[in-house]
Design a protein around this nucleic acid. Structure first.
Length: 635
RNA sequence: GGGUCUCUAGCUCAGUGGUAGAGCAGCUGACUGCAGAUCAGCAGGUCUCGAGUUCGAUCCUCGAGGGGCCCUCCA
């Protein structure tokens, strides 16, 4: 129910706000770009990321879903992973990213499902495009710049197919089908790393005597009666699956793109075929064996009118994709989650029981290339961890607010420290380590209540150290588990500063809290777990002329409200899972409070044990009794 | 059969050419009427096995074994 509003909605962040410092021109950003690496499926190794152009732009295309049903957790993983990548490249590295993700809205399954349901294919696809967008918004996945639908580019696909035929890499057969001639392209198979004889041709692929080779795949499929069809030189029909991505990339993004992503299962045949088509269409198939990023040089403008096949000189021997990124699967009981196996969980069903940010936390807790086992336990753990983080962050915010002007000043100084770090840090690994050690070292020398810039300069680098560690993790092939792990020590520091005697006495307490708060806001934003109220307030404060202190005060208030709401939502969903109601819990708390007042500890303990057994942990505080999800083994 | 990835604490995962870390779970202490939350600390690993390279390997190479995925639509 209430698990949508707290999220920053996609529209709010259509442009990704800078994360690595307000002054996104800092050395840090350029330095970060230098060391970003991604695992390239083509080379099967990590490579330094060097975009095709040096003007700070990056183009990225990710294969979208075939829209005939609800999306499941496997889909969620792909689009969350590439959403983090999008955020990292945009907000942290400062690239101007053109992100394109398509909808496959014409294919055999769609036709079959539409006929089965007795609706037009367009009605079916419209519906599930809408549902997909709802799922993505719920998961706080930013919308790509473009979300082209295959059916809107059929003329371009026909044009691409015509080019491929003209270049001698495809052939039309009786019946109106067009097949790609795999044997005509020497480099075919290099992305997926397989020789053609490796494929068990004919064993599982339907034999079609009209094909020159069993490995040939359809570029154009003739329409059967009653099927959706477009006119073409080969008769009415529809495009094959693989051609849509080739054509849309060519049309919308030009002959060469920087990043092409998708699930592992797309490596073969989809991306292998896409690569073949793109090469064949531009007539540069003979360069197929070379895969050099170094000699690509400038490609000129990235945009193209497309469709006329005159771009071969632009292609210049460089593969049309510079970096192929593929994510691992979501498994269930160590088996791939898929519709055909029937072991899938839809995003929607999961979000009815778990918070979208908990699902996101679960997803980013593993590296995108590794297999991820889906389980309730995993989501419970993620929910619990998210609760801990949110509670700690709320406590920080409340402490800063309670400190009044000092808190506001600490916030203002923290912003300065973060910005300075972004501008100055020539954050080599060693300087990072030093910063971390400095942050970890508890006792700073001298100076009590901070005043002015001097205090800011003298404050420990806890905030910059955290952000730096997270950025380093993400720069290393999007190591999100390491990024999440980097939060552990700072979170403990926060709780130490807030609750222990030693922590409360630290003179730099507010400075560290403020810095960590700022850093965590940025980290959460990078991971796509920012809260709408909070993010909105920060943006406003940045652009407002109300003065630093007032901005800090309103920002803290917004953070507090957003975090309280998140905690409330997490509790509400926990109750859903426990099949309980807030009213029932409150009634039990009330009864126990009365029992305690009457010194009937046997009764009060019994109530607590009972609730704990169900998953509701009571917390007695000076302000009264509250609860949180969890269980206590010792009760 | 071919290809590819993977095997680190009970579980989920980071990491490094000089014998390893986090989170959760467990235990202890502080705190508490007792608990919990929180903090501190403890315990827990022949880094799948074997061979090789190396002064030295968990990390590199080869092999074996277990597991995932692809070779059909698939994220």
């Amino acid at each position: 129910m209430a698990h949508r509003p707290v999220l920053a909605q996609a529209k709010a962040a259509a442009t990704v706000a800078p994360v690595a410092g307000a002054a996104s021109s800092g050395v840090s950003q350029a330095e970060l770009r230098e060391r970003v690496t991604f695992f390239n499926t083509m080379s099967k190794s990590k490579e330094l990321f060097r975009p095709r152009l040096s003007d700070g732009s990056v183009s990225m295309y990710v294969c979208g879903v075939t829209v005939y049903d609800y999306s499941h957790i496997g889909h969620a993983r792909v689009y969350v992973a590439f959403d983090v990548l999008y955020r990292f490249l945009s907000a942290a590295c400062g690239y101007k990213v053109t992100y394109v993700r398509n909808f496959t809205d014409i294919d055999d399954k769609i036709i079959a499902r539409a006929q089965q349901s007795g609706v037009e294919t367009s009605e079916l696809t419209e519906r599930f495009i809408d549902e997909f967008n709802k799922d993505m918004a719920a998961l706080n996945v930013l919308p790509p710049a473009l979300e082209p639908r295959a059916t809107a580019f059929v003329p371009q696909m026909i044009s691409t197919i015509t080019d491929i035929i003209a270049n001698g890499h495809a052939y039309a057969v009786d019946g109106g089908d067009v097949f790609f001639d795999v044997a005509s392209l020497p480099g075919y198979g290099r992305l997926s790393g397989r020789q053609q004889e490796d494929n068990r041709a004919g064993e599982r692929v339907a034999v079609d005597s009209r094909k020159r080779s069993p490995a040939d795949f359809a570029l154009w499929k003739a329409a059967k009666p009653g099927e959706p069809a477009w006119p073409s030189p080969w008769g009415p029909g529809r495009p094959g699956w693989h051609i849509e991505c080739s054509s849309m990339i060519r049309e919308l993004m030009g002959p060469v793109i920087d990043i092409h992503g998708g699930g592992r299962d797309l490596v073969f045949p989809h991306h292998e075929n896409e690569l073949a088509q793109s090469q064949a269409a531009c007539g540069c198939g003979q360069h197929g064996h070379e895969h050099g990023h170094e000699h690509g040089g400038q490609q000129g403008g990235a945009s193209t009118s497309g469709g006329d096949g005159s771009q071969s000189q632009l292609h210049n021997g460089t593969d049309f994709v510079r970096y192929w990124l593929h994510n691992g699967f979501v498994n269930v009981d160590s088996e791939k989650m898929s519709k055909s196996l029937g072991n899938f969980f839809t995003i929607r069903d999961v979000l009815a029981r778990y918070h979208p940010l908990a699902l996101r936390w679960f997803l980013v807790s593993s590296q995108y290339r590794a297999p991820l086992n889906y389980s309730d336990k995993g989501l419970e753990d993620a929910s619990g961890r998210l609760y801990y983080v949110a509670q700690a962050r709320l406590d920080v915010v409340e402490a800063l607010r309670a400190a009044g002007e000092e808190g506001q000043r600490a916030m203002a100084e923290a912003e300065v420290v973060m910005a300075q770090a972004a501008a100055n840090a020539n954050s080599t690994p060693t300087s990072e380590a030093a910063a971390q050690q400095e942050a970890a070292a508890a006792a700073p020398s001298g100076k009590g209540k901070g005043k002015g810039g001097a205090a800011a300069a003298a404050a420990p680098a806890a905030g910059p150290a955290l952000l730096s560690e997270v950025l380093s993790a993400l720069a290393d092939d999007l190591n999100t588990p390491a990024a999440v792990g980097a939060l552990s020590a700072p979170l403990r520091t926060i709780n130490d500063l807030l609750t222990t005697k030693a922590g409360r006495k630290r003179p730099d307490r507010l400075a560290v809290l403020a810095q960590l708060h700022c850093a965590m806001c940025r980290v959460m934003q990078l991971l796509g777990m920012e809260l709408e109220l909070e993010a909105g307030a920060r943006a406003e404060a940045a652009g407002a002329s109300v003065g630093v202190a007032a901005g800090a005060a309103s920002g803290l208030a917004a953070s507090a409200a957003a975090l309280e709401q998140l905690l409330q939502e997490l509790r509400a969903l926990a109750l859903v899972r426990l099949d309980m109601t807030e009213e029932a819990v409150q009634a039990a708390i009330q009864e126990r409070t009365e029992a305690r007042a009457a010194k009937d500890f046997a009764r009060s303990d019994a109530i607590r044990v009972d609730l704990a057994a169900k998953g509701v942990l009571l917390l007695d505080t000076p302000e009264g009794t509250s609860w949180r999800p969890g269980s206590a083994a010792s009760l």
